[in-house]
């Protein structure tokens, strides 16, 4: 092979006709190309990464710092207090109450989200023709694209304990009427109903995607195999969509632990009283917000966030551990 074969290589410092040298040179050039390619890649990542680092990761790290300080927004000199913030928290009944509320909310919401959205997804998948199915899918998804705050206000009216729709329905069914948002027992369930209504669409969509990956033939073959619908669901569909289910559960746990807007709005919101009545809807997320932005106890709020973070982390680890054992990935 001669250098004339490749005019691109034909320049002054090309001193050898040796083939291996040529190979090496081409190699160098392609690795240069790779480096350039990578640089372009990172360059394109940079704006998004900068936003995330500046407004998400750094503040999140900073939170660890202020959780151990007596941190006042107006003072440049912060005093290290060790675990005092955490001790204060643990001594406050309200903090425990908020954890209790968060736990209650999550424990009800996750199964409700999972099973309701799966059920709706199954209905949408099986029971409807393609065209009408589209209308129904849109109808189910629509609440999810509405603003939480605006629709929560509508739900406040629905839950009006004296003259609202919810109680009218209960009364039509000859069931006892409830105090809903004015009742310490029913306020959080009322918020749950709103949240479910608002968020189900997303989870239904995720389940529909998961179900669409279960080949129709497998279900047909199972039915020819003599299995009736419940058995097909339990033995075939349920295991096959287990990765989707796991994803929904993780997403739902994170979302419910962090639930804020609908609780804030439905229980008083901007007009005060959020988290009521009598702290019955004060979840951990809400308490973090109030502590930081209503009462300006930033370090306490940071400590609370940290506890919330640890809880979510632990939950996710547990979920991962479980999923490694029961989720079937194809």
């Amino acid at each position: 092979m001669t250098k004339q074969l490749d005019p691109a290589l034909d320049h002054d410092d090309y001193r050898s006709n040796d083939k291996s040298d040529l190979v090496r040179r081409v190699g160098v050039r392609s690795s240069l190309f790779n480096v350039k390619n990578k640089l372009v890649g990172y360059g394109l990542l940079l704006p998004a990464a900068a936003v995330f680092i500046l407004f998400f990761y750094l503040p999140a790290l900073y939170l660890f710092y202020i959780a151990f300080y007596h941190w006042s927004i107006l003072s440049p000199f912060q005093q290290f207090v060790g675990l005092k913030n955490f001790r204060t928290l643990l001594a406050q009944p309200l903090f425990w109450r908020s954890l209790e509320n968060s736990l209650y909310y999550t424990i009800v919401m996750i199964p409700a989200i999972t099973f309701l959205s799966l059920g709706i997804a199954m209905l949408l998948r099986d029971g409807l023709s393609a065209r009408r199915g589209g209308v129904w899918r849109a109808a189910v998804f629509l609440p999810h694209v509405t603003p939480v705050v605006a629709t929560s206000i509508i739900w406040v009216w629905i839950f009006n304990p004296h003259f609202g729709l919810a109680n009218a329905v209960l009364s039509a069914l000859h069931l006892p009427q409830l105090g809903w948002l004015e009742s310490t027992t029913w306020a959080l369930p009322a918020v749950m109903i709103d949240s479910l209504w608002h968020s189900l669409g997303l989870y239904v969509l995720i389940f529909l995607a998961g179900l669409s990956r279960v080949p129709r033939e497998i279900i047909e073959v199972a039915s020819l195999d003599g299995a009736k619908s419940p058995r097909i669901f339990r033995r075939i569909i349920w295991p096959l969509i287990s990765p989707t289910t796991f994803f929904v559960i993780v997403l739902a746990s994170v979302n419910t632990w962090q639930a804020f807007s609908q609780i804030y709005t439905m229980t008083g919101g901007a007009h005060g009283g959020a988290g009521g009545p009598a702290f019955s809807t004060t979840t951990d997320a809400l308490l973090v917000f109030q502590t930081a932005f209503t009462y300006f106890h930033f370090s306490l709020a940071a400590a609370m966030s940290l506890v919330l973070f640890l809880i979510i982390l632990a939950l996710t680890v547990v979920q991962k551990w479980i999923s490694d054992r029961i989720v079937f990935y194809r």
Binding site: P215, E217, I218, V221, P239, L240, F328, R330
Partner: peptide
């Protein structure tokens, strides 16, 4: 009382 075989086998993957 039918046995059926599909193009993509349709085995139960799990």
């Amino acid at each position: 009382n039918i046995g059926m075989v599909f193009q993509n086998y349709a085995l139960y993957p799990h």
